[in-house]
Amino acid sequence: MITTNPSLHKEKQSRNNFNEMLQETSALTWRLFIQLIRRPSTLFAGILQPLIWLLLFAALFSKAPIDFLPGGSSYGEFLGAGLIVFTAFSGALNAGLPLMFDREFGFLNRLLVAPLSSRSSIVISSVIYITSISLLQSFAIMATSALLGYGWPSLRGFLLIAITLLLLVFAITGLSLGLAFVLPGHIELIAIIFIANLPVLFASTALAPISFMPKWLGWIASINPLTFAIEPIRMAYNNPVDLNAILINAPYGEVNGYSCLGILLILTVGLFFLIRPLLNRKLA
């Protein structure tokens, strides 16, 4: 007599589901990378733009008063972290565009009519793609900063940079993908990207410390998610990496490294839960 073990069957089923999800996620990620390789101009522009910013801004503020920046660092050293975070932020904010175009051109229907193991594969493939690109761009900024004599992070510093960027990219990519489902078309999504991009940069500590800002802007900068990503990365350039150190002297109090990462984690999880019902509805 043949008997079946329900728990074994369940385990096999979940292994199959995992393998299927892996297959569809890698295929969708591969598609995004093929697009990038065959249209490399977006990658080149994405790497070149922050480098131009680095060169121009560092030159522009090279003669700023010596007490302008904390710790007596040069403006180039100060700017690197801000540009790394801003580049990752911009890339993640644009993550919804390919999905929006797939939606508009009907390609998304091809994905939605397929028996995907989980439609989260569509979201995960975008996150993997954007994270990889952000890390590549960040590496280019770091290499250029090093060539310009602005320093190089330690191994622990690298780890901290990677964790910080991952948290930020996850959060903003999720938000952008959510917008790609909510908004009626790519024009509206591009408009939001345009409106959000530069103001979020200027209202953070990417270009100037809070102490240099008027009080109202200091308040905005000290609750801006970009600031919580910029300051740990800025610290990663200073040895030793100490997450207990105070990184932000905000108007509401002092914020250390752990708090910065904690806030980013809360933001990521919060945004995920915020957009999850939307993704479930659209992708169920």
Binding site: E24, S26, A27, R31, R38, G106, R110, A114, S117
Partner: peptide
């Protein structure tokens, strides 16, 4: 309305489709 990815080759699109159907 034929929905294809202009950047992929025909064969690559079929491979993608095959992976979506496991």
């Amino acid at each position: 309305d034929v929905a294809i990815d202009k950047i992929l080759t025909g064969r690559e699109l079929l491979h993608l489709q095959g992976d979506l159907y496991h």
